[in-house]
Write a protein that binds this DNA or RNA. Sequence first.
DNA 1: GTACATCTGTAATAAGTGCTACGGAATACA
DNA 2: TGTATTCCGTAGCACTTATTACAGATGTAC
Lengths: 200, 200
Amino acid sequence: MKTGAGKTGRPISFDKDAALEAAMLLFWERGFEGTSMADLTQAMGLNPSSIYAAFGDKHALFQLAVKRYLASRAQYAVKALEEPTLEGVIRALFDNTVAFLTTPGHPPTCMTLAGAMGCSVDAAPARDLMTEIRRQNEVAIRERLRRAQKSGEFAKDINADDFTRYLSLMLAGLSIQSANGATKAELRRAAQMALRHMGY
Amino acid sequence: MKTGAGKTGRPISFDKDAALEAAMLLFWERGFEGTSMADLTQAMGLNPSSIYAAFGDKHALFQLAVKRYLASRAQYAVKALEEPTLEGVIRALFDNTVAFLTTPGHPPTCMTLAGAMGCSVDAAPARDLMTEIRRQNEVAIRERLRRAQKSGEFAKDINADDFTRYLSLMLAGLSIQSANGATKAELRRAAQMALRHMGY
DNA sequence: GTACATCTGTAATAAGTGCTACGGAATACA
DNA sequence: TGTATTCCGTAGCACTTATTACAGATGTAC
């Protein structure tokens, strides 16, 4: 009963993209464990069998939702790292994060933090996926810093590893602040304070 | 069938303190939603009826566990605020946090972050409690900063509100870093970097 | 020892969990 | 039109969830 690539037969009658978007938003808000398949059927407007046929089981659906999140919402970090100067990178990292967290239409915090922190052993794979993504983000930052060191833009006697963790720590902190209910202006001032203390 | 304060009759036959400690550690690791009553009966070594008689339902037990957590594990923040000088306060805030996060015998992150971020509507009260505690922590920091401003130790033209959020942001960030798997030495260097950037 | 109050363990409750079997509806291709 | 193939909706699966009813055990107070 494999499906999804039928050459013939009845074609799918719903918007797969829209359904996945709805699933992503729900997972984002309630986390893996806090989102039930019943919740998903309602939010996606689909029957269980349609979901399972199109996306697989709950874990697979979560992975697809996360993938969509990374591709459509979390690109602000990648974009920031593409800034030509290091100062531009760091400024963009903070500015984009604040802009992202305060964009209406989705939860006020990062999906990798709301998705699954403390959870049951059944949900451990989802939690580990979230952790892995956070670490990957750090890898990208670290590589950008190394590049800046090679080009002479960033002092070589500063440990890129440590500075990466320091940056990552503050970006995650902004997300928690946002979850706490901080306003856009408040987040912006916090980010400015961080930048000023770093010398920007 | 109310219980717990029986003047006569059979007395409780288990260590209530030890049972609550076990519950607290499990909630800390798995969060409110990721911890089932079945998990709790096993970890606490009690039957469901004993748990319900002694602590109430799951929400009540969670509240008691959080209370215990705050009283027994999260005092490091309160202690830090009692330092006589502002520099002492801020240094202690970071040092104690790192020490706390890396203490063996409990999860590597803060309970208010692992307890419930994204969750179902049923678990929303637990999530709101976690948020409330995080905000209360900020209130305490802010008041300490105001006190330092009055005594002239802290510049009055700095917005205490903003600086509080900035500090809180970094402490939460350390907790996330710890959850990511950062070592004690790595956390310590990150904290040192933060302190240095602030001028300490 | 007797009466009473409470606890303990088992077993069961109703509702919710993720997931699937199945029959019928709908479409593509000949 | 006929046939193959796929999708859709319902209804149900076995299991887990939090919670409680009940019966017997175990203690205190007299």
